[in-house]
Design a protein around this nucleic acid. Structure first.
Length: 277
DNA sequence: CACTTGACCTGTCCGC
DNA sequence: TGCGGACAGGTCAAGT
């Protein structure tokens, strides 16, 4: 799916455009994409949008009724906003699962080819309750993410390989398959190394690599492998200059050694056999 | 308990 | 050209 840079890019646009607008009506054509629709009709339709937020890869659209639309895009989900001035617009299309009709002629489309993503209803009390997302690690671009905390978190899972741990969201959130491979390249660490074997200096390098790769991707509008679009329907460009992801057989940008692809944590995993130890 | 695998879905690509 | 199988940005529950 969209990983942190993609979700954050979407949230920034929605946070700019949605507050103050009202959700007039909701329609959907795949029940599992909108599983709470029965209980929630009155909590959503006719309500004003107060705020849009992100935690990990989840999006929250806070409504005046005291609930939030709780959204996860999983692998191929999209949230695309249409303003009434746009005459030709590629959505809705056959992947559109939910349509939110907004005030002033705006529409918000939830599209998802593979149907793994969803929009649920979360009472605000649960959104603010600290236990709700207690299983998740810190936000990588926040002050809560520190080398000390990261080191402590890694110590709890010594036998896991570093790629699996980064994907687990336990030590830090927001990384998926693309940015895990990229961050491990920047840190010079092989993806199948057990956490217990990492030296303090390597953990520090990894900490910095995670923040660097996520910031760089944010600047480039995220990654579009195939399906990702931002809230205005545009592509992300990080992959144009990725170090290893999607570059199997191509020369390493640092040492020219061909990039290799293996399976780690049941995921396709790209790395440079020379730069990563 | 810690870690790995299968399931949820559709579409695309590759080899025969 | 058609067909089967592997694979794709995520995350749980179920299995070992």
């Amino acid at each position: 799916m969209p990983e942190l840079p993609e979700v954050e890019t979407i949230v920034r646009t929605l946070a700019q455009e949605l507050p103050g607008k009202k959700i007039e009506s909701v329609s959907f054509d795949w029940e599992k994409s909108y599983p709470d629709h029965r209980q929630s009709k009155a909590l959503v339709e006719g309500q004003s949008i107060l705020e849009v937020r992100r935690r990990a890869k989840m999006i929250f659209i806070v409504l005046s009724s005291g609930v939030a639309l709780h959204i996860h895009l999983k692998m191929t989900g999209q949230l695309v906003l249409k303003d009434p001035m746009q005459e030709t617009f590629p959505f809705p299309n056959k992947t559109t699962r939910i349509i939110f009709e907004l005030s002033d002629g705006w529409s918000l489309f939830f599209n998802d080819v593979r149907k793994f993503g969803w929009v649920r209803i979360l009472p605000l009390a649960e959104l603010t309750e600290s236990s709700t997302f207690a299983h998740l690690g810190p936000e990588p671009l926040s002050r809560q993410f520190t080398t000390k905390g990261f080191t402590q978190a890694l110590k709890k899972h010594p036998k896991t390989n570093i790629k699996a741990l980064l994907l687990s969201q336990k030590a830090v959130v927001g990384l998926g398959n693309i940015y895990t491979d990229e961050a491990l390249f920047l840190a010079g660490i092989l993806p199948d190394r057990p956490v217990s074997g990492l030296q303090p200096e390597e953990i520090k390098k990894l900490f910095r690599a995670i923040r660097r790769v996520l910031r760089t991707s944010l600047d480039m509008g995220g990654s579009t492998r195939r399906d990702y679009r931002n809230a205005r329907g545009e592509l992300g460009h990080y992959l144009d200059q990725a170090f290893v992801y999607g570059r199997t057989g191509e020369p390493c940008r640092r040492c020219q050694t061909p990039i290799r692809k293996i399976r780690v944590a049941a995921r396709g995993t790209h790395f440079c056999p020379h730069c990563q130890k």
